[in-house]
Design a protein around this nucleic acid. Sequence first.
DNA 1: CGTCTATTTGAATGTACTCAAAAGCGGTGG
DNA 2: CCACCGCTTTTGAGTACATTCAAATAGACG
Lengths: 189, 189
Amino acid sequence: MFEFILENLALHVTLDEAEQRLVESALQLTTIKKNKVLLSPGEICRNIYFVNKGCLRMYHTDKQGAEHNISFCPENWWAVDIASFSNQSPSFYAIAALEDTELFYLSYSALEKLYLQVPKLERFFRILTQNGFNLYQRRITSALSKTAEERYLVFRKQYPGLEQRIAQKQIASYLGITPIFLSRLRKKR
Amino acid sequence: MFEFILENLALHVTLDEAEQRLVESALQLTTIKKNKVLLSPGEICRNIYFVNKGCLRMYHTDKQGAEHNISFCPENWWAVDIASFSNQSPSFYAIAALEDTELFYLSYSALEKLYLQVPKLERFFRILTQNGFNLYQRRITSALSKTAEERYLVFRKQYPGLEQRIAQKQIASYLGITPIFLSRLRKKR
DNA sequence: CGTCTATTTGAATGTACTCAAAAGCGGTGG
DNA sequence: CCACCGCTTTTGAGTACATTCAAATAGACG
């Protein structure tokens, strides 16, 4: 049950048996239905989520009411509005489920407590933030210099198999194009 | 001489006199000429820079040799390839001067040492990273959903006065458009 | 002053969008 | 089980945004 999340932590830090048990006992588990909203904009992001099964999306809703997906979180991804969570301030982004999803999560205070017991985790989340930072930097360059078709191919590489699982309009929103145009792109090949 | 950088640190952490002196004595100062490259891609980013006067840019050069500016760093900005610096691994981005520039900088080991003397700085750089993370997330949404003209107006708001100081082709590269099209945009208003 | 690069302008083209309509698909209730 | 409703996806036609190529002009720097 904890295999995926422990494997994920092991990518950046080495935990001994005792530390693993501490992490396990701090984690909460929940399952949510497709389309359930976990975080609404303006709300404080109280939890950091790890997707064990299923898929989430993070998105922003603009003044015209249009939604723009900033990232997908399938299995083994972490989901959090980092600014909102770290400062316990109102969130800019929303988080919702694209499929029925099984999640581990830690509240802000649970994580603070866990940091005291397993200080290595500070390192883990620092690296996680830096990797995210880096990923987003590159996506800006990609968004500004590549055509929609090139971005679509990058998406397929970055999220293998996800294309088959989620609605095209979600992918179009992530790519910054209309679902109509994505349909035409796919027809081409 | 240290006023700007101390003010900048004060945005997120409160340092007493002794701590300020420790920071000051760790900092190195240098001036570089316009167009000087501080960091080439593939090189390890050995320093974190604070711009005291002048302006830097961070950019990526693609396979076709085209440069894409990811950010500008005028006075009071920090410049670093964060992935390269934190892991002392090869950099993806380059950093170069757009004007004659006066810089404070800290090497990786100098910063490590300084963290031991002034632990509050860990908090400062954590917040800096988070803010950058957040800024870039929003820029992706902006890049994918706004027109070139809207992005141009956002740029002018975000970097007041910078437009007068740097070449249009640098701004065009940041906006993800051709200098030719930027010229037409400006003519319109 | 001359050279080199950056910017402007015009014309033609390509990329991506809107509007509109039709077809497909999934869930719900009779 | 099927008919219907609502939502997503496809397709066509016309349009707007942004690019390329080329040539002229303006600026920067030695």
